Deep mutational scan, measured.
Amino acid sequence: VKVFRALYTFEPRTPDELYFEEGDIIYITDMSDTNWWKGTSKGRTGLIPSNYVAEQ
Rank of each mutant, 00 (worst) to 15 (best):
I26M: 05
F4M: 12
T29A: 06
F10T: 07
I48R: 03
P49K: 06
I25E: 08
K42S: 11
N51D: 12
P12D: 03
N35S: 12
Y52N: 03
K2A: 08
E22W: 06
A6Y: 03
F10E: 00
Y27D: 05
P15G: 09
S50W: 06
G23P: 00
L7C: 13
E17H: 12
I26Y: 01
E55D: 09
L7Y: 03
D24E: 07
T14A: 11
R44N: 09
Y8R: 14
P12R: 03
T29E: 09
R5A: 06
T40P: 01
G46A: 02
Y27P: 00
Y8Q: 12
W36M: 08
I25C: 10
R5C: 12
G43D: 06
I26P: 00
D33L: 07
D33G: 08
R44M: 11
L7G: 01
T40W: 14
V53E: 03
G39T: 01
Y52Q: 06
W36H: 04
S50F: 06
D24A: 06
T14L: 09
F20L: 07
W36K: 03
D24H: 02
E22F: 09
G46H: 02
W37R: 01
I28C: 01
K42G: 14
M31D: 09
T40F: 15
Y19R: 13
I28R: 00
L18S: 00
N51C: 15
Y52V: 08
E21Q: 12
P15E: 12
V3H: 07
T34I: 13
F20A: 05
S50G: 04
R13H: 10
E11N: 14
Y27I: 13
A6E: 02
A6I: 02
K2N: 07
W37V: 02
T45D: 07
Y52E: 02
T40C: 15
S41C: 15
R5S: 04
G43M: 04
I28H: 00
P15C: 09
E55V: 12
T9D: 11
E11M: 15
E22G: 06
D33K: 06
E11K: 13
A54M: 13
K38A: 08
I26E: 00
I48D: 01
F10V: 07
E11F: 15
K2V: 10
D30Y: 04
T9N: 11
E22C: 12
K42H: 12
P12E: 02
S41T: 14
R5T: 13
T40L: 08
F4Q: 02
E21P: 00
V3E: 10
T40I: 14
P49S: 04
Y8D: 06
Y19D: 07
D24K: 00
W37C: 02
Q56C: 15
T45C: 10
L7N: 04
N35G: 12
W37F: 11
A6F: 02
A6D: 02
V3Q: 10
S41M: 11
Y8C: 15
I48W: 02
I25A: 06
Y27E: 09
T40G: 07
